[in-house]
Design a protein around this nucleic acid. Structure first.
Lengths: 310, 310
DNA sequence: GTTCCGCATGAATCGATAG
DNA sequence: ACTATCGATTCATGCGGAA
């Protein structure tokens, strides 16, 4: 059983601002990862979460993407048990975001609909933590509806050329004006990428949390790097990033992909390579850590909107 | 502490096809209900769920609408503990639906976004249970896009009057053809009801589950009737319904509302009135049970679609 | 250079079949 | 009986090739 605790131990206490990861789900990805059974799952994860608690800054946040599978016609309970055990470790279970996957896996069964959501569990060390809500504001909820309504209304009243120009103008108007804070439900589609690796989640997902919980120059950690989506997004947003994965292929792939960015804007300080593992064979631990100098003027996008919420 | 176990005991074993309810949340609505603390919540609910297990048919389903509150900056864990305990009682935790509330309660906090979702926990007695999936099918995802696309195309080619008629024809085509099964994420708006009861339970929510898990003539139970939304919807859909509530005002309100329906299509068999309670004062148990004869031809809407999926 | 159709492909789940 | 493997089911998305 590969575990990333060994590599995590090399990281300093209170050094990470955001941990965001999507560990292998129980009995899933058996070919690439070990394939942890639902029974073992909590015991397998607790040593890792203990290390994560150590390396996270007191103001930092841990986002855990997970979903229990169906077993014997029932939803498994290992996620709930994990939450309860992590609280005993000292974690605060601050919030549960919902990732509503627009394109979920198809299929039909006599007693069940398609599973179209996953948990995004937020854990913290302290009640006080950094949160930059203005960075993830979204266009007002009326926007989409208004657009459709306007479209059909103008269709009835005007000819085509007028519709098109008026439509464009209105759009830009709305974009400039109405922003609101989001909720704890995220509505994103999974990415159908043609790459060799199936990306765990779309880039917009880590992007949202990185913007929300870190500022430029902060450090983001993904202990189950996979294809490195989190790290790539972190680089793009001028955050330092650390990635760990037990699969060497992923390690090399991400390294080559990140090096493109490195040329543009990163400065690589350290790469933890394939150490001699005293585990069983095929169990190499790999890790990457990119340090980067933030660009000159910290881009502090202030979109401070004090809307009239009566 | 008012409990509805007393009234539940008067119901026969294996007599209910669907239980759907939204119990008072912990530490909420303290003025109307007893105000159960998060600490007591599981112990308070378990005797009730035990009775519900008894009265539910083996093929029946129990839908529990609940959401843990924030306490001391953390999400409480009583819902998870309740699930674990109910499994020990013999319940199967089959599925967790998400109710995505489009227009959630407004507000802003420094460390938290608006809560826009609630849990709809599905419990069953057996792995085999009744589920009528065809009754809740929804238009295919392409539907909206196709409609808009077609709309704009016809706009280009035809004048308005022709567009309207052609549009209608096409729509009906699509409606007949393009249906898909829904997922386990429900996307409904909360109702802005001006009623005296605080529960914001849109009618479409119980309607969805009643259609999905019962057929006409079946029996629906809501042990926390409140304003009676579930019962009213059940009547409208030609299902028998039983409602229980400890608040006499609600009882009377629902009774008057349901009597309108009664005139139209129901036949009232029994009403459990204000019994002499040997609890502390202000703790009356009230209940309503409506029996109704289903209309002559059972409306067996068969939308059996054997599409040509090569 | 657009638009459109066809196709492959998923953090899936059930039921049957085989050891 | 109990576990492992396989086929069937199903739909949003993005890609490539074609008009």
């Amino acid at each position: 059983m590969g575990d990333c605790t060994k590599h995590l131990k090399t990281l300093k206490d209170n050094s990470v601002d955001l941990i965001i990861t999507s560990p292998p789900y129980a009995d899933q990805r058996k070919d690439t990862y070990g394939g942890i059974s639902t029974h073992e799952y909590v015991d397998w994860f607790l040593p890792i979460s203990k290390e994560l608690l150590r390396v996270l800054k007191p103001t930092g946040t841990f986002i855990l993407n997970i979903k229990e599978k169906v077993q014997n016609g029932e939803r498994s309970t290992y996620v709930m048990e994990l939450i309860l055990e992590m609280k005993k470790q000292g974690w605060l279970w601050t919030e549960e975001f919902i990732w509503h996957k627009k394109n979920s896996y198809p299929g039909k069964w006599p007693n069940r609909f398609r599973d179209a959501w996953e948990r995004l569990l937020q854990f913290n060390k302290n009640k006080k933590f950094n949160m930059y809500q203005e960075e993830v504001m979204i266009p007002t909820g009326d926007w989409a509806k208004s657009r459709l309504k306007k479209l059909s209304e103008t269709d009835k009243k005007r000819d085509n050329s007028k519709v098109k120009s008026g439509f464009g103008k209105n759009i830009s108007n709305w974009i400039d004006r109405e922003y609101a804070y989001p909720t704890n439900v995220l509505h994103l589609a999974t990415e159908c990428n043609n790459k060799s690796h199936s990306a765990a989640f779309p880039e917009s997902l880590p992007e949202w949390f990185i913007k929300l919980f870190t500022k430029e120059g902060d450090t983001v950690l993904d202990p189950f790097m996979g294809s490195g989506t989190t790290n790539i997004v972190a680089q793009r947003l001028y955050r330092n990033s650390i990635g760990i994965d037990i699969m060497p292929e992923y390690y090399n792939m991400v390294k080559s992909e990140l090096s493109q960015y490195k040329l543009l804007l990163c400065e690589q300080n350290a790469v933890y390579g394939n150490e001699n593992s005293n585990h069983q064979s095929g169990d190499n631990l790999c890790g990457t850590e990119y340090k980067q100098v933030p660009p000159k003027p910290y881009r502090q996008a202030k979109r401070a909107k004090t809307k009239n919420n009566t």
